[in-house]
Design a protein around this nucleic acid. Structure first.
Lengths: 155, 155
DNA sequence: ATAGTTTTGTTACACATGTAACCAATTCGG
DNA sequence: CCGAATTGGTTACATGTGTAACAAAACTAT
């Protein structure tokens, strides 16, 4: 096993304290843990589940709307939607007033799957934040919002 | 444009407040912003830069060690290392006491690139956290550590 | 009306990724 | 010792991803 000491005489990045790195690890750990559940039980990928969550949360929507709400690429959304349609979880109907647009909505089956996953996802989140006090949760909320605002602006 | 109101009478997930989702967006926003800089200027991918950061931070190491420190898959590390070796940024020498192991280290060129990127990465991080007070930074640090510990345990 | 532009969504391509299978070196058990 | 299990690392395959090119529909403005 190599030493845990770091180089003192050269510039280096304290990776274990570097915010982008920590955020990335944390986000992956959390997302993957939840994803395992709905991938195993329902065969859904992360983009697929996100599309369903948006439809369940905000009602029928066009692909562009889902892009905005999920921050996912439109290609990713397009493909996720097609897989959901193949699986019978979502259907799509043309918008008569603008035939480029296709309005997606959860099917009865899709709604049923959605309603089964939501509690699982919420329970998972609850477990993860369960070590935080109410005040800490509020503070986390505030800090994440602040960071996101700055990061988006600098993007 | 569809309404911003949500479904009140069915279970739904308030995506915009859902922690895994927010973490994922934030981590991607931040990582991509920094990645653009070292991809554009040095042609490095995120895994490649992470390998270099670990070698610069902790000194020569075997692939397994890098996997542990970065939480990246061993295949990802293997490929990133090979690209770095092709580019002359890293070299590898067999460990005589265990010839399965190959110890990677930054070349002079690799060290030079590393030393150019570190300040850029730190400056980027500084910009992002610059809206936080010292107390908020400390709190963020604490909260992320707490979340990571719980998430890892539940993984 | 109609040419040019914008918007919505899909397809083609190039590339990154993880799982699983694999090879080679080492260690473990008898 | 010697075969079996383990470990370090790479390769093959299937899949996921984003950029760019594209097609179709709808605006815009003469």
């Amino acid at each position: 096993m190599s030493s845990a000491t770091h180089n003192r005489d050269a510039p280096h990045l304290a990776l274990e304290a570097f915010l982008p790195y920590r955020l990335s690890i944390l986000a992956n750990t959390v997302s993957n843990a939840i994803a395992r559940e709905y991938q195993g039980r329902f065969g859904l990928t992360i983009p697929e589940w996100r599309v369903m969550a948006v439809l369940g949360r905000f009602g029928p929507d066009v692909a562009t709307g889902i892009c905005e709400r999920t921050a996912m690429d439109k290609v990713t959304v397009s493909r996720a939607m097609n897989r959901l349609i193949d699986g019978g979880l979502v259907n799509r109907s043309a918008d008569d007033s603008d035939r480029r647009r296709a309005i997606a909505r959860l099917t009865r089956k899709g709604r049923s799957v959605h309603d089964k996953i939501v509690p699982v996802a919420l329970e998972h989140e609850r477990r993860i934040v369960s070590t935080l006090t109410t005040a800490e949760m509020a503070e986390l909320d505030r800090l994440l919002a602040k960071l996101q605002a700055t990061a988006s602006a600098n993007g």
